[in-house]
Design a binder for these strands. Structure first.
Lengths: 207, 207
DNA sequence: TAGATTGTTAATCGATTAACAATC
DNA sequence: TAGATTGTTAATCGATTAACAATC
């Protein structure tokens, strides 16, 4: 039997499911259904069941899903049941906000290295874990030494491609790019983009 | 003739095209092609031509697209050739970073009102334009008075739904939501989400 | 048992791509 | 003119949905 590749679009929805399950857990709930999840997320119940069916059977007919169980399963599937070290490049306003962000805790990620090219910033502690900002010329070595697989780019657009290149050459396989530019990486490397301007411009058409 | 609705997914790519054109302009280029744009963005040239064809004919056979002309056309189509006032709710670390962000300039958006519920923050100037943080209980009134159509939510997850509700009731039609929770709004209101954890969790599956 | 909800199938719907006539 | 590239068509590909047997 051939294991068919899971569509990217399905994998992309799992973190949304995970987030919803996390809230249900926080509310002290034990059981949910594809219907309830769908209502909360604005997704059809059929789609949720179909998405989950790519990975196994997690529910009980007539009952629904055990929230805690499904949560754990999805965390394993997404490989966020452990902790990924993350290298952050860019210690300006944006990088600072990312380093200060408390939302990574418990979600599978921890920023353990921060880089910049400005002498004034290098050597200072930054973020919730008071990490010492390193010179960006130590980026490759640090990634290699600690076997870091996840990077965040928070540099100006003009520097993003070079940073991505360095990250990839050193072994990074997943890049969250806050720089407002499309970067080119080998197909074995994943990139996700965060650009508030793009988000806003996607809505004004409808106004 | 029926004007068929443009697929959301097509509209969603236009800001990416716009961004690429903006860079080409900055490089001093005058003409580009669907092939070149596609190569830069990792999109097929056919898709770019097809997407644009929903809105009109912007190119010349044998030549390609005049960058400046296409840029202006897309800005008009997306309605970002003017300036949208934006109300930002949440003046914590994240809200501060958004208010400090210089990337909105020239892209069609300007934050003109900032709100929080913490007395310590209300009344202080914030962001690149030194806007005085207002009490969030003035949110609805301000939105109505200035006819603001665009909102950004940068509150804790637990407050996001209530803020969205207030915004929508006061007339906001587009919400950029940084809170890590799916919010429910009428179908006439657009929402875009920015959640770095979701972005990261979409990649770890492949590691 | 009766009611509820899953997992899965098949049909529908929609998006992408390849190809090419038109034409600059 | 010859070469290049658009805009568009039709085919392909993929995603979503409706429906329901299975079963808790």
């Amino acid at each position: 039997m051939v294991r068919r590749a899971i569509p990217d679009i399905v994998v992309g929805r799992l973190p949304i499911y995970l987030r919803a399950l996390s809230f249900l857990l926080a509310e002290g709930r034990q059981i949910t259904s594809s219907q309830e999840l769908g209502d909360r997320l604005g997704i059809s119940s059929a789609q949720i069941r179909k998405d989950l069916s790519h990975f196994g059977e997690f529910g009980k007919q007539g009952t629904g899903y055990d929230i805690s169980f499904l949560y754990d399963q999805l965390r394993q599937i997404l490989k966020v049941d452990g902790m990924w070290e993350v290298a952050l490049v860019g210690a300006g306003n944006l990088g600072q906000a990312i380093a200060d962000y408390g939302g990574f805790a418990g979600k599978g990620f921890v920023i353990t290295a921060i880089f910049d090219n400005e002498p004034a910033k290098i050597g200072s502690p930054m973020g919730i874990d008071n990490i010492i900002v390193q010179n960006v010329n130590e980026l490759a070595e640090t990634i290699r030494k600690r076997d870091i697989k996840v990077g965040i780019i928070a540099t100006p657009a003009q520097d993003a491609q070079a940073v991505a290149r360095t990250m990839v050459d050193a072994g990074v396989k997943a890049i969250l790019n806050y720089a407002p530019i499309t970067i080119t990486v080998p197909s074995s490397v994943r990139v996700q983009y965060i650009d508030p301007v793009v988000g806003l411009q996607r809505m004004t058409y409808y106004l």
